[in-house]
């Protein structure tokens, strides 16, 4: 599976309108500029749409950073 981080980065760059953003597993709403609650909604919508997966309500609440999101996505994509 190609590096998930490199697939997510362009989505984050588009939605946060920051072409120089370097996404890491540690990135989260408090250390990435512009990642506010509305951007969060857009990020989730775009990721769900692009990868054809859906996060449950519980999962959405528990995600602490991009790393956790990637782990969750990989689990979902593996059992598909």
């Amino acid at each position: 599976m190609p590096n998930m981080l490199s697939q997510l980065e362009p989505i984050f760059r588009d939605i946060l309108d920051n072409s120089r953003l370097n996404l890491t597993r540690e990135s989260n709403a408090s250390n990435v500029a512009g990642w506010d609650s509305l951007a969060h909604i857009n990020l989730i919508s775009a990721i769900e749409q692009q990868f054809g997966i859906g996060f449950t309500l519980g999962e959405l609440q528990e995600l602490k950073n991009v790393g956790e999101m990637i782990d969750l996505m990989e689990r979902k994509l593996a059992i598909r």
Binding site: D14, L16, D17, N42, S45, A46, Q49
Partner: peptide, 14 residues
């Protein structure tokens, strides 16, 4: 809609 969500900020700027 997917494109608009992703490109909205840059479209807005243009």
């Amino acid at each position: 809609v997917e494109t608009l969500i992703r490109q909205r900020k840059s479209l807005r700027r243009e």
